[in-house]
């Protein structure tokens, strides 16, 4: 799966320190292998968002505050957000395990304090992933995202850690053909 160059969608706004138990309450961890089911409950633990998921349109963009995705290491947090149809998460900053998980999944995230501060719920956004530019059509604004280190942007571009590991396993097999 390769990344689209440009993503367009409506913004959903969230605050600071949204933790993984709010993104997907632990009771839904029983659906760990079912992305669509997880998606139905995305952000359900954020007070006031108990019935948020059904209102999300495919391709919408989630904009969070600082330390987005803190708490648990459960990868079901970004999986649930992808499962509900969100195409991209922008935040002021990300908690490290959420950040890793998203990149490892090949799921696009952008760190942009500018956008996190200025964007309001319902704004129409267009994001150029390669250039790291976020255009706000509703406000006529433009924001920059902070660039990732090369290894991370390469991982994202190739579709995450899965293809990277496949390649690495291939190299190892070529070097010692008798090993599995």
């Amino acid at each position: 799966m390769t990344l689209p160059k440009v993503i367009r969608g409506k913004a959903w706004k969230f605050g600071d320190n949204i933790d993984t138990d709010q993104i997907i309450p632990a009771k839904y961890a029983i659906y760990s292998l079912d992305e669509k089911e997880l998606g139905k409950h995305a952000m359900e633990g954020v007070p006031g968002h108990e019935t948020w998921a059904p209102g999300v349109a495919q391709g919408d963009i989630l904009v969070g505050g600082s330390n987005f995705g803190c708490g648990s290491s459960r990868e079901i947090a970004p999986v649930a957000i992808r499962g509900v149809g969100i195409s991209l998460v922008i935040a002021d900053s990300f908690a490290r395990i959420f950040f890793r998980n998203a990149i490892n999944m090949g799921y696009p995230i952008l760190q942009s304090p500018q956008a996190a501060e200025a964007v309001e719920e319902g704004d129409e956004l267009e994001v150029d992933l390669e250039e790291g530019i976020i255009r706000n059509f509703t406000k006529g604004d433009e924001y920059r995202a902070e660039p990732f280190p090369k290894f991370m942007s390469d991982l994202l571009r190739m579709g995450g850690l899965v293809p990277w590991v496949r390649k690495r396993l291939e190299e190892r097999r070529r070097m010692s053909p008798t090993r599995g």
């Binding site: 290491s73 459960r74 990868e75 395990i97 890793r100 998980n101 490892n104 999944m105 995450g160 850690l161 899965v162 990277w164 590991v165």
Partner: peptide, 8 residues
């Protein structure tokens, strides 16, 4: 770490 990390 997450589950994709662990798989790696």
């Amino acid at each position: 770490i997450g589950s994709t990390d662990l798989a790696c």
